[in-house]
Design a protein around this nucleic acid. Structure first.
Lengths: 158, 158
DNA sequence: GTGCCTGCAAACCCTTTGCACTTTA
DNA sequence: TAAAGTGCAAAGGGTTTGCAGGCAC
């Protein structure tokens, strides 16, 4: 592998793998070859790859790997907080006809989406260092949490 | 239809429809019954509905409506800036092994995702009015724009 | 009347799942 | 060796598309 701009220092990756092995021990997850390689492939990239890219990359070293193992592994890692998913919680597409500038609160439990308005957030400027990467058109902000209804329900259950 | 809490004043909807008709005239889009009804259904709701909910709602008034017309209409409206989609630009899931607190810049043209760090953004607090809806766990921020490579390419073309 | 729009049905793509076999601890 | 993990193939769910007829302009 060449030292292209999408490379993370090997030292950092080793530390990440070390953390991972410990996390697995602590959580009772088996540290299989497949999982190690998938995590390493992800940790090594700065491209925020999708399941298929990871699959293609890891398969060079592990030709028997199957795509569904990649999906299963990523889901497992995400559930355990070992990795994160970029962007919104994936669900079906939802739409909005509100043309006034606004932001969303999203309940991670029931999926409620609620509009709110905030001049402070509207005025938020992207940090200048981002200019090195590109020009920002919009600052998308999403508050994620638990709505009052879901909280009340939780309290009632306990 | 009852006056539940998910209702938007009819006056506001009428204004929205009026805007829509004008936008269609201006852009040379036909104002069909289906489109009017779909937009009205969306404008009337505060639930940020998905394609299927809209389909079920509109079908009460337009029984011949098909689900793919709803999809086509929503896509058209979105392209023309008449409505917006909640959450990230929908594409396949992409993952991240970076465990340091960070944010993303996303190029809306090529899909590049780039990490950046900002203490200002890390410290951002949700506006207090959101407490009326629920408790915020995380503030998700995404900068959307055009990366330098895509800009250079655009310039080269013109 | 012309060309955009619609409904229908089938295709599509990403992701998930059931099952039998394999591997890890 | 017991339980967890894997590969395979097939299903699943949301979304898109090709086509023939229908409708707005």
């Amino acid at each position: 592998m060449t030292n292209g701009r999408d490379m993370i220092p090997q030292k950092q990756i080793d530390r990440r793998i070390q953390e991972f092995v410990e996390a697995c021990r602590a959580q009772g997850i088996k540290t299989t070859n497949q999982r190690m390689e998938i995590l390493q492939e992800l940790a090594r990239s700065e491209q925020h790859p999708d399941a298929e890219s990871l699959f293609l990359g890891v398969r060079k070293r592990l030709p028997s790997l199957s795509l569904d193992t990649v999906y299963r592994t990523l889901r497992l890692f995400e559930e355990r907080g070992i990795i994160t998913r970029v962007g919104s919680i994936k669900e079906r597409a939802r739409f909005d006809a509100n043309t006034k500038r606004h932001h969303h609160f999203i309940c991670t439990q029931c999926g409620l989406i609620s509009d709110f308005y905030s001049e402070t957030l509207d005025r938020l400027k992207p940090p200048s260092e981002v200019e090195a990467v590109g020009t920002t058109d919009t600052v998308y902000i999403e508050l994620r949490g638990i709505c009052n209804a879901c909280q009340a329900q939780k309290r009632a259950q306990s």
